[in-house]
Every structure is written in structure tokens, then in C-alpha cells.
Design a protein around this nucleic acid. Structure first.
Length: 837
RNA sequence: GGGCAAGUGGCGGAACUGGUAGACGCGCAGGUCUCAAAAACCUGUGAUCUCACGGUCGUGAGGGUUCGAUUCCCUCCUUGCCCACCA
């Protein structure tokens, strides 16, 4: 049957999807060989709300690229799975009693359905789920590798505690002093925790960023988070006791300007060094700051407080007495928890010194002999008032002082990092159990590999205990076990792993998802790694992307993976925004409660007029667009293409219903053009032949660079030209449908069949542009006179400059009358610029 | 406060390495078809002056380099994101 009558595109979708998924045409080739392409989407947490139109943006982009790569002869690995441990399912269980695995299953099925109606070409044979015991068995196994290497340790330290989620959090999960998830103010709580020694990899994590094809901003964020800084540790003694303490500074050259010292309130020596008559003041200050949350401490940022201890340190260079203070602007978690304060050359110290009337001594000048500064000067300069280093530029001064201190045994060069060890345990139910047993005799003993996985027990109560213990602690018959070492009584570790654990290595499991003997087969790992392209949101810039790199490097050092880095190229898709409406009372109104006009203005039932605001899509703003409805109405291809046509993949941009209408119109025109009975045309139209080859070249380039918006527009230009003609060349039909296929796979496959072809276009080779046709084109070269285009000349490619100049002068002759040509600039193949007087 | 990114028609956006600014789409206007409407198709569409030919202005603002600047440099403004006492 051949008809140009336009079908219901959603019905076409269903028909093509039955064929694809039925035959599993997306199955990953067994042995990838040299031309492999591992394209990974960040796997989602399957929430109960399902996908909104913003989620698939990255999935569509990667899908287009995978289809294009398959057509270009690559073996493609394009998998999908579920990062399904986490709080929402557990909180849902607390309020309803429905077990998390039940909700998780339901949500995964819904996500998968929503992905499949878009025609995403995942190899579902490789689907994984982090909550499946077959999967988390190996998450636990990798944890044990870290444990055995000494990279996992127990510590009782003050951690970030979220009072609402009732669990400890990693530093990376705290956003501006608040819980990243629920926005509660974070409290400090001293608890026994499992920690991972990510700091042991600080250097590698920093250095290896260099070789990656990642967005610069993401690399910056990781660099800042790791926060390497070079300086020195300097030991100070006190004038009234034997005690000493050490400070860290990046500017040892300013030591002559150190007019006071500060210890953090948590510093272990704080009370020890305090003079008896200052004890009560100091004690009060310490307990006051202990009661403050981090949020309170930072909110009072500008107003620094502190208390004098009555003790004096000795400046090792001058022998001078320096008062020692306690102040909470010095953090115990960085450096040594103590500083030498140099108010003349540090803004914070300057502020503090002004407030407490402490002396300010300038020891660095911008230039030799510059007038004394009356404000803080933090840049490099020349040392002054500093006997040993006077006249030296800052870098030399730093070196000399450090060497002098080292010589005397009073200090050493030191590199410090902002990165802290990873608080890895959570006091919650729905996570991987940490596979360890506590035994009175043997201490902490790893669960033997043969006994993995340590399964999550079924419980009645999911409610966090709030005591700092996980709900698992209440499951006495699960907790009670045998010590794997001595056989005596043991108790299981009841903390669980954080949400990030499963995603630290999932990209490896996709390569060998069903392996029951190992987390991955080494040969398979070698053949697919690294991930060639990783697409996902930028919100993971310092969470998942740092944690996964850390685990990967540990596995690399253990000889278990072959690459230093897991993700070669990284791209962040932008956020989809949409129009939201808020009435005079500030209440968000949904689209169904409003009368929305063409202009975008809306009216409530009471006649109140509301202007739209472009905002992030969210349920609370009632501006969520559901992809299911769009797909039912316009078909998956229009949806896919519109999302790509909206703008650059990385940009945030607003969803506009009128935009998708335009794409729908385009696809209908494609249908009419391809499906109509049109006389077969010859292939002698030179202009068309050129355009055809230009389009091939453009699409190839754009796909390689993930510039899908301009790829779509190139196809529109091609179709506009094709539609003008009374005839249709076979070459155009085939090439147009082939080029369009990655973007609109359903309609193109259907048209392929209707026009008498067999099989899916996906199995067809990607076309090659004919270089001879491209270079044989006539160029239109503008001729400028004093910067304005006055004429055009036409020539073939690579015409020599002299000829072009001559042609240009002739063509612009009318504009040169009575003037003197001062200069002629010829840019071959581009333009000729004539300067006249 | 610091760092990064970005500001182009009524709107989303395009523009190679400094070389015809506004591709493509939306919207809008006019037209064809229709009893009418929708759909579809055709034409036009940065501002401004001009009957017209054509000219002038124009990529957040102001300067600079250049034959030529959305693109490079300086100053400033605005927006977004990230970090936020890291010594």
C-alpha cells in the first residue's frame, strides 16, 4: 500500500517498536573490536512521579548518537538500568507500609515503559538494578576490596547530621549548610562512622582530570572541591609551657607579620594552653560555638568572634611574643586547625584584628620602596620588615623561609587539600548492608566472599531509630551472627551504604551484567572500557562523578580494571524549563485551572490576569509537561526532534508547545514528500546534488559534535528544496530518510518499508559525502568597499588571489569612480575587501 | 565576597579559525483554497528614512585593536550556575 495520507504517528511508533524490541535489534555485539562506542546515560533513580519531558533530553541525544554510530559501523554498547536505593522509596514505606522493593519494581517498570515509547535503543538484556542482590553482592565485594586495602575505616568523628532524614551525610551532600535532599539545616554530631579514604587519592583525582574531555566548568568544580594548596607547616612553642602547636600557612613568608595566633574551638590543645584566669571565658566560648550549626557559623560570616587564651606563642624568627586566641573562623577540619594570623596580608585576619585591636604589621609591599599600605594586601609582592628575606619577591621569600624552618626542625613544606574523607555509612534501611561483622575477639571481620551478598532483611519498621542507629539494628536475628573468623558470636554492621555506592561502578557491570563469578570479566572490561561518551546532569559534578572516579582508581590500582579514568568524554544536558503561573497570592496555578491565551498571558476563572514566568519544571510549580501526552498526540519522533531542535544540548531552555507543532508539521511534510506517488527524477540537478552532499557532510559533522539543533535545521533546508521539485530522485529519497533516521527512527523506518525497501534503516550504512561534488561548487564571494558589501563575484574553489582581486575591482567599478584604491585584501574563497579614499 | 558561563529580532535560536549578522523554526501580516473555519500551500517579516532606486542604524553599555569585530582586548551593567571564613 502506498499512500500519502498521513497516519497517526503514535500508531506508527507502536508498530515499529514491536518490531525492534521483538527482535532485540539493539542487542550489543559480542566482540566489539577496534571500532567500539560505549555510550552511557546516567541511570536514573526511578521516582514515583515518572519522567517529565526534561529527563529524556540526554537520553534522546545519546540515542541519536548511538543509532548514527551503529550506522557508521561501530559496535555500540548502550545500556540502561536503575539506581534504585535511596530515601524516597524508604520514606514511602514508612508512611504506607509498602515495602521499598515493591514501589521500586513498579517505578522501574513505568520508567522503562516511558523510555520505550520514545524508541530509545537500549539493549535491555543488560538492564541492571542496584537493589538486586545479584548486583549489590558485587557492590559489597568492591567495598571489601577497599576495606582490605585499608581504604575503609571506622572513626568516631563529628559528621553532618540531617535531623529530618535522620542520617549522617557526606560533605558533598551538604549544600550551603543544608541537606541537599530535604534542605534541613545540618547539625554537627559526633558518631561512629564508616569512612572511605578518598583523600589518599586526592592527587590522582586532581592530576588525571587533565586528560579528560569534560566540560571545563565541571573540571573546575572538581579541582576546587579537591582544593589543593601548597604551603608550610610551622611549629610554634609557647612561652609559659612545654606545649607546642602547628599551623598551616600558604604564606610562610609573612611570618614576621604574624601578630596573633588562632586555634579552632575544637582544637585539642585549646584548653590545655589556656591561662587559668582565662579558663572560664574560653570554656564559655568553646561551648557556645559547639552549639552553633555550620549554617549559623557561616551566616554570621562577617561578624567574627574570638576569645584570648592568655597564652603567648614565640615567633621562631624574632623570638617575639604572639598572643594566642580561640576563634571559630578557624576550622578544625582544614590544615591543622590552627593558624598564624597576619592581618596586614589576609582579609579575615585584618577584620579580626580591627575588631579586637590587635597590631597590624606590614611585611609585604607591592613594590620595593612603596609607601606603607593602609589596607589589606593579599597579593604577591616584595618582603619588607622581614630581616631574613627583605627585598625578596614572594615566591623566593616563601622558599627561603621554608628552608630555614626545615633546617631548624621547626617546619616543612606541606600540601593541603580541602577534600575530606568520605563519610560512607547511613543510618537508614534502604541501602546496601555493609558486609562486616563485629566480633569481641577478632574485632571487625569482613564477610567472606562466598557468603555475599549480605541480604537486606525484611523488616516491619522502616522508621529510622533517630538514635544514630539504622533500623537494621532492631532486627535482632539478622544482627546476631557467627564471626566468620573464629565462629564465636558476632554482630553484623547495621549501617548501610549511601545512595552513591551502586553508581560508583555500574558502568562496569553493564559490560558483563550477568557474571556470577566476578564483578566483571577482565577481557570484556578491556574490550569496552573506557566509556566513550557519558551524558548526564551537571548536578553530579562533585558527587557521583568524584566518587566513581575514586572507586575506579582503586580498582585500577588493584589491577581489576585497565583504565585510569572511567569516563573519557562527558556532556551535561541542559535543564528544560517551562512556563509557570503564580496568582496574586503567590500560589502556583496549573495549566488546567487557567485560560491560557496565544500571547502566553493567562486568566483565572475569576478573571485575574497572570503573566507567565519561565522556571525549572517541578511538581510544586505545577508546570510539569508529561511526555506520555506529547507522544500520544504527536508521536515519539516529533518529541525527539523537538527536544533536539530547541537549542544546544547543554543549554537550559523553555518548553514551548508551539515549537513542537512546527516539528510535527515538518514530519508531516516528510511523509507527504516521501509517500506520494511522484515521478522518478533523474539525478542531473547540479544544485540539488550539491545540497544533498552538503547535507550529508553537515549531518555527519553535527552528529559527531552533538549539535543536533543545527542538524535538524539542515534537514529542513534539504526538504524545502526537495519539495519544490516535481520529481524525486531515488538517491534523495534514500539519503534523506537515512539521514533523518537517527532523529526520527519510527517514521523513517515506516516510510522505508512503504517505499519498497526492506529492513530497518538502522542497518543501512551512513552515507558518505562526495568530496568532488563539494569542491566543484561555485562560490559567491562578497566584495566590500570600505567595509560594506557592494558587489558579489562568482568563482570556483581555490581561485587565486590575483584573479579574485581583478574580478572584484571590475564588479565594484561603479563604487570606485573618482576614488583612489588604497588597499585590496583578498581572503581566498571568502571575500575581497577594497579600501578607498 | 570569590570563580565560571552567558547576554543577538516579538520568541527559541544560527553564524567556520576575525570575513555578507539574524540560517532554521515559532509567531505575526497578506494571499490561495473554502459558504465559513481549521488544515494545507504561497508571499512578506531586525529598526528606520524613501513612492522607488537606495541609504542609515543595529549582536547588554562605553571605549580600543583591525581594511573588517557577535567573535579579540579593557571598563562597566545584567542574568544564571558553582563555591562560600579552606589560612
Amino acid at each position: 500500500m502506498r499512500t500519502s495520507e498521513i497516519p497517526d504517528f503514535h500508531e506508527v511508533d507502536k508498530k515499529r517498536q514491536r518490531a525492534w524490541y521483538g527482535d532485540n535489534v539493539f542487542k550489543t555485539p559480542a566482540a566489539p573490536g577496534a571500532k567500539k562506542f560505549y555510550c552511557l546515560d546516567m541511570f536514573p533513580y526511578p521516582s514515583g512521579d515518572g519522567l517529565h519531558v526534561g529527563h529524556p533530553l540526554g537520553y534522546i541525544a545519546s540515542d541519536i548518537l548511538c543509532r548514527y554510530k551503529r550506522m557508521s559501523g561501530f559496535a555500540v554498547l548502550h545500556p540502561m538500568g536503575w539506581d534504585a536505593f535511596g530515601l524516597p522509596a524508604e520514606n514511602y514505606a514508612i508512611s504506607t507500609g509498602v515495602r521499598p522493593e515493591v514501589t521500586t519494581k513498579k517505578n522501574c517498570d513505568n520508567f522503562k515503559r516511558q523510555m520505550n515509547i520514545l524508541g530509545l535503543s537500549y539493549d535491555w538484556d543488560r538492564e541492571i538494578n542496584t537493589t538486586s542482590p545479584d548486583y549489590y553482592r558485587w557492590t559489597q565485594w568492591i567495598f571489601l576490596q577497599l576495606f582490605n586495602k585499608g581504604l575503609a575505616y571506622e572513626a568516631t568523628v563529628p559528621i553532618n547530621w540531617c535531623p529530618k532524614c535522620k542520617t549522617g551525610l557526606a560533605n558533598e551532600e551538604v549544600y550551603q549548610g543544608r541537606c541537599e535532599r530535604c534542605e534541613s539545616a545540618i547539625e554537627r554530631k559526633k558518631m561512629r562512622q564508616w569512612m572511605l579514604k578518598i583523600t589518599a587519592y586526592a592527587d590522582h583525582l586532581l592530576e588525571d582530570l587533565e586528560g579528560l574531555d569534560w566540560p571545563a566548568s565541571t573540571m573546575h568544580m572538581q579541582k576546587n572541591w579537591i582544593g589543593r594548596s601548597e604551603g608550610a607547616e610551622i611549629k610554634f612553642s609557647l612561652n609559659n609551657s612545654e606545649a607546642t602547636f602547628t599551623v598551616f600557612t600558604t604564606r610562610p613568608d609573612t611570618i614576621y607579620g604574624a601578630t596573633y595566633m588562632v586555634l579552632s574551638p575544637e582544637h585539642p590543645s585549646a584548653l590545655k594552653i589556656t591561662a587559668p584566669d582565662r579558663l572560664s571565658a574560653v570554656t564559655d566560648y568553646i561551648s557556645a560555638s559547639a552549639g552553633k550549626s555550620d549554617l549559623e557559623r557561616t551566616e554570621l560570616e562577617k561578624d567574627k568572634t574570638g576569645v584570648f587564651t592568655g597564652a603567648y606563642a614565640v615567633n621562631p624568627l624574632t623570638g617575639g611574643k604572639i598572643p594566642v586566641w580561640i576563634a571559630d573562623y578557624v576550622l578544625m577540619t582544614y590544615g591543622t586547625g590552627a593558624i598564624m594570623a597576619v592581618p596586614a596580608h589576609d582579609e579575615r585576619d585584618w577584620e579580626f584584628a580591627k575588631k579586637y585591636n590587635l597590631p597590624i604589621i606590614q611585611v609585604v609591599a607591592r613594590e620595593q620602596g612603596a609607601a606603607p599600605a593602609n589596607k589589606v594586601f593579599c597579593e604577591d609582592g616584595v618582603a619588607v620588615n622581614s630581616e631574613l628575606i627583605n627585598g625578596l619577591r614572594t615566591p623566593e621569600a616563601v622558599k627561603k623561609i621554608t628552608a630555614w624552618l626545615e633546617n631548624k626542625g621547626l617546619g616543612r613544606a606541606k600540601v593541603n587539600f580541602k577534600l575530606r574523607d568520605w563519610v560512607f555509612s547511613r543510618q537508614r534501611y534502604w541501602g546496601e548492608p555493609i558486609p562486616l561483622v563485629h566480633c569481641e575477639k577478632c574485632g571487625t571481620v569482613p564477610v567472606p566472599e562466598s557468603q555475599l551478598p549480605v541480604r537486606l532483611p525484611e523488616v516491619e519498621k522502616f522508621q529510622p531509630t533517630g538514635t544514630g542507629e539504622s533500623p537494621l539494628a532492631l532486627v535482632e536475628d539478622w544482627v546476631k551472627t557467627e564471626c566468620p573468623k573464629c565462629g564465636g558470636p558476632g554482630r553484623r554492621e547495621t549501617n548501610t551504604m549511601p545512595q552513591w555506592a551502586g553508581s560508583c561502578w555500574y558502568y562496569l557491570r553493564f559490560i558483563d551484567p550477568k557474571n556470577a563469578k566476578a564483578f566483571i570479566d577482565p577481557a570484556a572490561e578491556k574490550s569496552w572500557m573506557p566509556v566513550d561518551l557519558y551524558i548526564g546532569g551537571s548536578e553530579h559534578a562533585v558527587l557521583h562523578l568524584l566518587y566513581a572516579r575514586f572507586w575506579h582508581k582503586v580498582l585500577f590500582d588493584l589491577g581489576l580494571v585497565s583504565t585510569k579514568e572511567p569516563f573519557k568524554k562527558l556532556v551535561h544536558q541542559g535543564m528544560l524549563l517551562s512556563y509557570s503561573y503564580r496568582d496574586l497570592k503567590g500560589v502556583y496555578r496549573g495549566y488546567d485551572e487557567l485560560d491560557i491565551r496565544e500571547s502566553g498571558m493567562a486568566f483565572t476563572k475569576d478573571g485575574e490576569e497572570i503573566k507567565p514566568v519561565v522556571e525549572k519544571m517541578s511538581k510544586s510549580k505545577k508546570n510539569v509537561i508529561n511526555p506520555d501526552e506529547i507522544v500520544t498526540r504527536y508521536g515519539a519522533d516529533a518529541f525527539r526532534m523537538y527536544e533536539m531542535f530547541m537549542g544546544p544540548l547543554e543549554d537550559s531552555k523553555p518548553w514551548d508547545m508551539r515549537g513542537i507543532e512546527g516539528i510535527h508539521r515538518f514530519l508531516k511534510r516528510v511523509w507527504v514528500w516521501a509517500a506520494s506517488e511522484t515521478p522518478e527524477g533523474g539525478d542531473d540537478d547540479k544544485a540539488l546534488k550539491l545540497l544533498r552532499n552538503q547535507t550529508i557532510a553537515k549531518l555527519t559533522e553535527d552528529f559527531e559534535n552533538l549539535k543536533f539543533n543545527t542538524a535538524v535545521s539542515a534537514l529542513m533546508i534539504y526538504l524545502n528544496k526537495l519539495s519544490e521539485k516535481e520529481t524525486r530522485a531515488a538517491a534523495d529519497l534514500e539519503i534523506f530518510l537515512t539521514l533523518l533516521h537517527p532523529l526520527a527512527p519510527h517514521i523513517t523506518d515506516e516510510l522505508w518499508e512503504i517505499t519498497g525497501h526492506k529492513g530497518s534503516l538502522m542497518t543501512r550504512a551512513w552515507p558518505q559525502a562526495d568530496a568532488a561534488v563539494l569542491s566543484a561548487r561555485q562560490l559567491e564571494i562578497p566584495v566590500q568597499v570600505n567595509g560594506k558589501v557592494k558587489a558579489k563575484i562568482y568563482s570556483g574553489e581555490n581561485t587565486d588571489g590575483k584573479t579574485l582581486e581583478k574580478m572584484a575591482l571590475e564588479s565594484a567599478a561603479a563604487h570606485l569612480q573618482g576614488k583612489t584604491v588604497v588597499k585590496v585584501i583578498v581572503v581566498p574563497d571568502r571575500l575581497v575587501s577594497i579600501v578607498v579614499k
